[in-house]
Design a binder for these strands. Sequence first.
DNA 1: AATAAATAATAGTATTACTATCATTTAGGA
DNA 2: TCCTAAATGATAGTAATACTATTATTTATT
Lengths: 226, 226
Amino acid sequence: MELDIRIKMNEKLFLRNPEESVLGKKIVKNGLILINKLGFEEFTFKKLSIEISTTEASIYRYFENKHRLLVYLINWYWSYIEYKVVFYTNNMSNPEIKLKTIIKLLVEDPGDKGLNSDFISEQEAYQLIMWEGSKSYLTRNVSKDNKDRLFKPYKDLCERISCTIKEYNPKYKFPHSMASTILEMAHSQKFFMQNLPALTDFSKEQDDKKIILFLESMLFYSIQTK
Amino acid sequence: MELDIRIKMNEKLFLRNPEESVLGKKIVKNGLILINKLGFEEFTFKKLSIEISTTEASIYRYFENKHRLLVYLINWYWSYIEYKVVFYTNNMSNPEIKLKTIIKLLVEDPGDKGLNSDFISEQEAYQLIMWEGSKSYLTRNVSKDNKDRLFKPYKDLCERISCTIKEYNPKYKFPHSMASTILEMAHSQKFFMQNLPALTDFSKEQDDKKIILFLESMLFYSIQTK
DNA sequence: AATAAATAATAGTATTACTATCATTTAGGA
DNA sequence: TCCTAAATGATAGTAATACTATTATTTATT
């Protein structure tokens, strides 16, 4: 069975829906790959247009600027992760197992086995979050963008984790902050491990198991009923 | 008593030491203010040169590019925080009190009472870390920059916190990751509180007490001997 | 007072981040 | 199948960015 997961994206993110044309899909797919290759600062629509044999002007018909493309890609990823979280935890009644499953889904690199359609590659999206994730909101437009609901997928996922924490321990005082800490650290610790290992207890190129253990211990010791 | 704290900065950060001239100090001081005002992406040396009535070329004689200026400012801040940590925890023998003091120093906005010499304003530096902190290392040059020891102040502070955690509980397995989590979250949670409050349990413009409580509970429940 | 160093003034280049116009191709409906 | 509208391509243009280079002028040092 092969499912085509269709994620409804916020219309404010684009001028023309990239999912509805061949060019649009190429922009998104190869934009993601090129941002990963060059880094967001060095990435330009001009370079992307050469890569996919189109013109700058054509890309601008889809996205107002490269930051919107970034937020589009990041939103796709968080929506997709939430879909996976729902899919894998749906039948679970034990919030502890649920939370452990969520941490695994956040930390584990999808690698080759991840979704890799003609649209967005899950593995590339994972890399993007790690390197460029926080650049989506670390701008002077946060509040305006937030009003346009550009961060809804991230906030929804945070809310879902927060609810599961509450299920586990209704008395815990900081479920949202704990959820956003887990979300942020899942990728930060991985980034640190690979690039600034002195900031972690994991050695470069080590597997994800230790990060998962770290996050689990932090979460469960914190939310234990006292 | 008025102390002039002199922080030795890594020489790779600049082409000419900005502390050694009036213009250099103006670049650093007003650069910080202007980055905070415009956001790092919108900030340019041209705009700064107009602000301080000099030329672009003159600024380029001090800093290779704006990213180096950013790292300079961020390093100054982390070195200064480490200085404060040493100053305030020097005479403490109890690691619990030490760690609580550190968290306070990280979270609390220095406000007007902070260091505000003719050089770098502590309060402005605090804002900078919150908004632009992670942009210092989220580039394709991390590894190269790391080899040039450009992140030493941050890593030193992380190491110091890590050691204090080890003092508290020598058996705890993840002292560095816990330290970097505290460091990152001190500013992220504050940023979220002010700009994306749905990601926290704190309401906009609330005081820092709750963030401190959150971080303390996360830290101490995690590192409790089991 | 001489001289070295720092700064200002000016100019110039390739690239970025767009916007505009018009021609051509493609896709869908009558 | 032809017609029309929509999408794309080709081309051009602009202001700003991220620099580098050159020369003149000011400032500090011996």
